[in-house]
């Protein structure tokens, strides 16, 4: 009987292989890093792929300006501890330049991330962006290749993807075109938490249950912050919550939870009846095809 890898070892090994293909094939790649749990898994995979050497790419954060300070502090500390390089591309800069024009100041900024991302790709001449997207997150992502071709405008063409066979990844592009590489495509939310547990990864503390002021709005829990203020006639409550994803404040909602350790979060994940995005992304609920649409426009 042949020895086989456990599923976590298998997923890790696949992710390392993908990252090394990026390093071997692309001339100027970058790793998109948000400080969130998926991108922290990516960093651990990168360590296993490239240590004792340096990472053959810098990290880049597309900063909407609406962040929980804990996450930003964590981001900076993490990169510093690793001794790697961080580029911050911020939406505010695109707004100053005039390439992003908000309809109103409190408008969710997630969909504008694509613009800043594409500007940064052009400025730095990146030919590949490594991202932490997973196929189990969303139905359009479930269709995307591990190395996904984007044209000069960053557009994904879901009806005309490059066939991707075995683990032979074609990352060849012309100048201006771009590959998005997703090493943890085949991981589920559960795999991510199990990996975090096994590797003893540190996370920003908003992932763990904590007291927070919130209001309940259209079936969602909305945290009370300076960019998501209380509206008239809304009742502010202080309850135990945790975040299942972190991102722009205006489109990420917490869930009610007492899980304050990774172990408890794994138990909760095993018994949850609501998907990660369904529970927590205020931006995907707008229309059934909103993720597909955003990806066609250059989103991660």
């Amino acid at each position: 009987m042949k020895k086989l890898l456990s599923h976590l070892d298998w997923l890790e090994s696949e992710a390392i292989h993908i990252m090394r293909e990026v390093a071997g094939q692309c001339s100027n790649p970058v790793l998109l890093f948000s400080g969130g749990k998926d991108s922290l898994c990516l960093l651990r995979v990168a360590e296993k792929a490239f240590r004792p050497g340096r990472f053959p790419f810098p990290m880049m954060h597309i900063d909407t300006g609406h962040n929980y300070p804990e996450v930003i502090n964590f981001r900076d500390k993490k990169i510093n501890d690793l001794g790697e390089r961080l580029i911050v591309a911020s939406l505010e800069d695109s707004m100053k330049k005039g390439s992003i024009v908000l309809k109103s100041n409190d408008e969710p900024r997630n969909k504008y991330q694509s613009i800043t991302l594409l500007e940064a790709i052009e400025e730095h001449d990146f030919d590949c962006c490594i991202g932490g997207a997973r196929r189990d997150e969303e139905k359009a992502r479930a269709k995307e290749r591990i190395m996904s071709f984007r044209d000069e405008f960053g557009q994904w063409d879901p009806k005309n993807q490059r066939p991707e066979l075995w683990d032979l990844y074609n990352a060849k592009v012309h100048k201006g075109e771009n590959i998005r590489a997703f090493p943890i495509s085949n991981w589920t939310e559960m795999d991510v938490w199990q990996y975090i547990e096994r590797e003893k990864l540190e996370l920003p503390n908003i992932y763990f249950a904590h007291q927070r002021e919130i209001v309940r709005r259209d079936n969602s829990i909305v945290p009370v912050t300076n960019v998501t203020p209380v509206r008239e006639n809304e009742l502010v409550e202080k309850i135990m919550v945790r975040f299942r994803t972190v991102g722009d404040i205006t489109c990420t909602a917490p869930v009610e939870s007492d899980a304050d350790t990774v172990e408890k979060i794994i138990l909760e994940t095993a018994s949850t009846s609501i998907s990660e995005r369904g529970a927590t992304r205020l931006d995907d609920q707008v229309s059934e095809a909103s993720m597909e649409q955003r990806k066609k426009e250059g989103y991660f």
């Binding site: 969303e138 479930a142 269709k143 085949n186």
Partner: peptide, 24 residues
């Protein structure tokens, strides 16, 4: 509809490209 996630697939009721799904 669980796997036919693209707009074009849902419109036509057919699968166009591979969808990947997971369970344990």
């Amino acid at each position: 509809l669980i796997t036919d996630g693209l707009q074009a697939e849902r419109e036509q009721g057919i699968t166009i490209d591979v969808a990947y799904r997971y369970f344990s």
